[in-house]
Design a protein around this nucleic acid. Structure first.
Lengths: 146, 146
DNA sequence: ATTTGGGTTGCAACTCAGTTGCAAAATGCT
DNA sequence: AGCATTTTGCAACTGAGTTGCAACCCAAAT
């Protein structure tokens, strides 16, 4: 995503494009996996954590990023790939690697339709699988770029 | 669960029965839903939070309680109803009410078997449905014991 | 019954992510 | 340029979770 794409995306969601916001947006895009606030802080050393905090909040409000909860640590933020600008419709499963503590998007794993008992109303689903990712599993078992 | 049951359960899991532990165990049992550390603190005012913390840790180590992550707030602890004393095998879905912020166990909602891409190894699943519970939905719509 | 030792407890202090107030800087509008 | 609004960095605060430590409790040994 180049700067122009960023500007466009921000505009489409009604977020004023500032230097900080473009940086955060690019970081999220380039990571290609959900990042925690702390990970973003490490990634973008030039922005104070309060700035990252407020930027993420603005993004979430504008439906530009999703909040996902992987296990334990903290929540993570990922670029919303929804086609609608107002609704988050690309819910998908996530995989949390207990070894390297990264969180992956499993776009191919269909999200089971929530089945709740009578009386309950479901509005969203969180489907998180924990385990070990290929990189951490396979250092010698399966030969894939280390 | 009376005191005797508590003593037995603790013994079965190799946890020394102390006054605090029996209190925490009973609180968890009586709540019949997963409680957070803070909720337990409120519930059992006679125990310092460090005591509750350490008690919960002991319980988790002994596979006496599960740790579950509902949205946002904090992790919750629920009595493990596994039939084995060493393995946690009663994973089930949970429902988080966004109105009253309680978490319910959906014992009847079958947990979908995790399907992960090649290379990933799944060890556990977290299936959390968010929405509104009957008590918060139905105050006038559906007549069920208020 | 007293001593001894290991586990348990309460307190206070600490950590650390997340959050907020505020004044300075940047931005946009006229 | 002048003014209003927004954004930013800093520093301080918050609150859950965690830990060190000394006091305590209970069981086994004397």
């Amino acid at each position: 995503m180049d700067t122009n794409d960023s500007l466009l995306l921000l505009a489409r969601h009604g977020v004023k494009p500032t230097a900080n916001r473009i940086l955060v947006l690019k970081a999220l895009d380039e990571a290609r996996r959900p990042l925690s606030m702390t990970e973003l802080e490490d990634e973008i050393e030039t922005i104070d954590k309060s700035g990252i905090f407020r930027t993420l909040k603005a993004f979430v409000d504008a439906h530009l990023v999703h909040v996902i909860e992987d296990g334990g640590d903290s929540v993570r933020y990922e670029l919303c790939h929804s086609h609608h600008d107002e609704v988050d419709d690309d819910q998908h499963a996530h995989f949390y690697c207990q070894s390297c503590h990264k969180t992956f998007c499993l776009d191919d794993t269909a999200l089971p339709r929530p089945q709740v008992p009578r009386g309950f109303t479901a509005t969203s689903v969180n489907y998180l699988i924990k385990g070990v990712c290929p990189d951490c599993t396979g250092h010698d078992a399966s030969r894939r770029g280390s």
